[in-house]
Design a protein around this nucleic acid. Structure first.
Length: 488
RNA sequence: GGCUGGAUGGCAGAGUGGCCAUGCUGCGGACUGCAACUCCGUCUACGCCGGUUCGAUUCCGACUCCAGCCUCCA
């Protein structure tokens, strides 16, 4: 039974989809005008894992993640660069897609853009005006009348009086209430604009998501997600807009991810303490970054630091090390009790996941894994199960190879739900984080030479060669007369 | 100031009313020519003060500290 922590109720609840077997999920994507950083990665890796697990659990999921491609910051950056805002957003969207793919994220089913949804946005605003929830100010800007929506604050547990009391001094505006927010903003000369019943302008940020979610998955859907910093005001405003315009409940379950911190402070553009995905990828493998993210729960804050990335890398290596030397290719697996699975001829290393038979939960590890993930996507506990399997594989390697192979299949299959341990162990272990290609020929020649030295009991020469390897950033592992190597 | 969440062993990080998290690191042992890998063992962990209980890190209350939101923000 899947339980999900719902921000609306501040508790873990049994998840019941609106339509049996189907889930519609909308996640707020990013405002695109720059490189994505590790904070963004954390949120979207979290939802990638949620997506994988929901599908693994048998749900037919529609995953929508939008792109905000019109916004004050975009206009400002484009103007600073002296380029059209569309060139800017197109360029960085491309980069975002590359970075996200590098981190092993599957693309969302639908990726709507605000600028492709202007008609729906205008329609939603008009509906709010018609129902008395919105008005046009003297400046021409259209605002949402916040006090008009009785449930305002139900997501973020705020109340209007307290919000207004704690408010910073605002510049004079034509808003009727200080909490009112803009739905349609009139264009200044030279700014991009779209025609509307209220004049040429652009949509406000919050209304975009209300319009795009409705356009893609309807007025009432199962899950709405995003970073916890969007809880207020963005998601609160979305609820106010959508529920007022549509007259029905908006999203049943709200999922919010914890922020990434740097030296105890939130990683963000404004604090200028961010690390882009690109720069971190220069030093760490993508899978290491991904592992680092799922080593803590998605709702907790995650402390970014090289020590933690190094530990994540060592942990991931341990997982791959357990799989090394286990090759199902060409092995006779007839005698294996694989619960009806036919693994003959399958190459564990880099096999196509679609071909991987499903392991059922009669296996204790699978059952444990699902139990962890069913409990609000508890990835740290799920990862712990992976390590239990790795240990069992290592124990079985020497005396029960068939069991080791069986466990390896389970490890890889469960790893696929988290998006880790999907490479050939050898590829992973011998790849260096940077892009310097190891000189395979030299390595192999030296290994042969060292082997001879060891046979001649020329320990001095053998150790000399090993030291040479260490200087190249390579560790040697002698096993049953064979020598493996890996990067470190 | 208001709202929300958190405080676990050297570090990271789950969890539970009484018993094992897990990973990294350290230490001892096995394996090894020596290492590495691996295995076995191991390091007085639950912010502070009260309360409930046969028993609390886990439940309740107070306190201290930290973070997030209240301004664009994943």
């Amino acid at each position: 039974m899947l339980k999900i922590h719902n921000t609306l109720t501040q508790s873990k609840q049994e998840f019941v989809p609106i339509e049996p077997g189907k889930i519609r999920m909308y996640v707020c994507g990013i405002t695109i005008y720059d490189y994505c950083h590790i904070g963004h990665a954390r949120t979207f890796v979290s939802f990638d894992i949620i997506t994988r697990y929901l599908r693994y659990s048998g749900y037919d999921l529609t995953y929508v993640r939008n792109i905000t491609d019109i916004d004050d910051k975009i206009i400002a950056r484009a103007s600073k660069n002296g380029e059209n805002f569309k060139q800017l957003t197109k360029r960085y969207t491309q980069i975002m897609h590359e970075d996200f793919a590098a981190l092993g994220m599957a693309a969302p089913d639908i990726e709507p853009k605000a600028t492709d949804s202007i008609a729906e946005i205008i329609e939603t605003i008009q509906s709010l005006i018609d129902k008395g929830f919105a008005y046009q100010g003297t400046s021409g800007d259209v605002y949402y009348n916040v006090p008009k929506f009785e449930d305002y604050g139900k997501l973020s547990k705020q109340n209007l009086e307290a919000l207004q009391a704690g408010e910073r001094v605002d510049v004079a505006t034509d808003k009727q209430n200080s909490m009112d927010f803009v739905l349609w903003k009139m264009a200044k000369p030279g700014e991009p604009e779209w025609d509307s019943p209220w004049g040429g302008g652009r949509p406000g940020w919050h209304i975009e998501c209300s319009a795009m979610s409705k356009k893609c998955i309807g007025e009432h859907f199962d899950i709405h997600g995003g970073g916890s910093d969007l809880q207020f005001p963005h998601h609160e405003n979305e609820i106010a807009q959508s529920e007022a315009a549509n007259g029905c409940v908006f999203a049943n379950t709200w999922i919010h991810t914890g922020m990434v911190q740097v030296d105890k402070l939130k990683m963000s553009k404004s604090l200028d303490n961010f690390f882009t995905i690109r720069e971190v990828l220069k030093k760490y493998r993508a899978e290491t970054i991904r592992y680092f993210m799922l080593s803590s729960h998605y709702r907790s804050q995650l402390s970014y630091g090289e020590d933690n990335l190094d530990a994540a890398n060592a942990a991931l290596e341990r997982l791959y090390l357990s799989l090394r030397d286990i090759d199902l290719k060409g092995m006779d697996l007839k005698g294996m009790d694989l619960k009806g699975m036919d693994l003959k001829g399958m190459d564990l290393a880099g096999m196509d996941l679609a071909d991987l038979p499903k392991v059922d939960d009669s296996n204790q590890y699978v059952a444990k894994f699902k139990q962890a993930m069913d409990d609000d996507f508890n990835t740290p506990e799920a990862v712990a199960v992976l390590f239990e399997i790795a240990k069992a594989i290592n124990r079985s390697k020497n005396n029960d190879l068939e069991n080791a192979r069986y466990l390896a299949v389970i490890l890889i299959e469960l790893g696929s739900v988290l998006g880790i341990v999907q490479q050939s162990p050898n590829d992973f272990l011998t790849a260096s984080a940077g892009d310097e290609l190891a000189n395979i020929e030299l390595i192999e020649r030296l290994i042969v030479e060292r082997k001879q030295a060891r046979e001649d009991k020329n320990w001095a020469r053998a150790d000399e060669i090993r030291d040479q390897f260490n200087q190249m950033g390579i560790v040697l592992e002698d096993k049953d007369g064979k020598t493996n190597w890996r990067s470190c």
